[in-house]
């Protein structure tokens, strides 16, 4: 029964019309983002030694993947697609019949959650590969550079995608159960990407508001940057010093001096919050919100 619900929900998410509409918009954004990032690629990069090419590729691929594949791909798509499953069933009334069958409510919720996570991880991986292909085509790297610049960091991206997909879907499940309404579920889940991109802008632009008002506590992009850093270092190893300024600018993880090349060794962590705390917070919220959804769903009058 669990598998039947899982497959059914995965089928609902894989509606071809929604996917095509999403991907068309997605490709446009990818193209413009990649154009921006290619400005950072050295001229005649293919003529550089392989190690330098890999670093140059990683310098652009890591933030592009983080921002595009996971930031836009998972968070924005997650908010939209998560509303297509449980909230839609509850709103339309089809959930009545499912719950009148000999199936536990926790099975329905967890099967839906896992289907959503599977779908988003698939979407995230597809987006990461798409970003790699476009970057490779537009950047002029040699094929061999893909090994260290893309595939070497892929396990970290995969794990990161999994953690973020679980997080955004836990938010979505809680919103679905609390509202039982598609639009409200999408709107509530959409708070995550709004905080991600809104506070990303507040952080990147100069000014003291971000620190004075402790906005970093709510800066989803900063916390997710920390999460990615922890996972990267656990799975791949130390983040290369040449790449750290990129992590600093985009994810807010490192203090970036005016001249990063003058720094001997690793950059210092910004340290608003210890990266491991961000990961713990993310996992805690995922489990907590899923728990709230489960408890509420058990008692819900359909």
């Amino acid at each position: 029964m669990f598998l039947a619900i899982y497959r059914k929900m995965l089928g609902d998410l894989s509606d071809p019309k929604s996917l095509v509409a999403y991907l068309l918009g997605f490709l446009g954004v990818l193209f413009f983002l990649t154009l921006g990032f290619t400005n950072e690629i050295p001229d005649a990069v293919a003529s550089l030694p392989l190690g330098e090419q890999e670093l140059a590729l990683l310098e652009v691929y890591a933030p592009l993947g983080w921002l595009f594949a996971v930031g836009i791909g998972l968070l924005v798509a997650g908010a939209l697609f998560v509303a297509l499953t449980l909230a839609t069933e509850a709103e339309r009334g089809t959930l009545d019949l499912v719950l009148s069958k000999p199936v536990s409510r926790w099975e329905v919720l967890l099967a839906t959650f896992l289907a959503n996570v599977t779908f988003l991880v698939g979407l995230g991986i597809a987006s990461l590969l798409l970003a790699a292909v476009v970057l490779y085509q537009m950047g002029g790297f040699s094929t061999a550079a893909l090994g260290g610049g893309v595939f070497g960091v892929f396990p970290a991206f995969f794990l990161y995608t999994l953690v973020i997909a679980a997080f955004i879907n836990a938010v979505g499940m809680a919103a679905s159960v609390l509202t039982r309404n598609r639009l409200q579920t999408a709107a509530l889940t959409g708070v995550v990407p709004v905080l991600f991109f809104g506070l990303f802008v507040a952080r990147v632009f100069p000014g003291s508001v971000y620190e004075n008002y402790s906005l970093y506590l709510f800066d989803v992009s900063y916390h997710f940057g920390n999460v990615f850093t922890v996972i990267y270092e656990a799975v791949v190893g130390q983040i290369p010093t040449a790449v750290q300024p990129r992590f600093g600018f985009w994810m807010g993880v490192y203090e970036v001096p005016d001249d990063p090349s003058a720094v001997d060794g690793s950059l210092e962590l910004v340290g608003y919050v210890d990266p491991i705390v961000s990961l713990g917070l993310c996992l805690f919220l995922t489990v907590g919100l899923l728990g709230v959804a489960l408890v509420k769903f058990q008692r819900l009058d359909i």
């Binding site: 029964m1 039947a4 059914k8 019949l97 069958k101 000999p102």
Partner: peptide
């Protein structure tokens, strides 16, 4: 078929 799978 779907409802049958849920209906034991």
């Amino acid at each position: 078929v779907y409802m049958g799978k849920l209906s034991a």
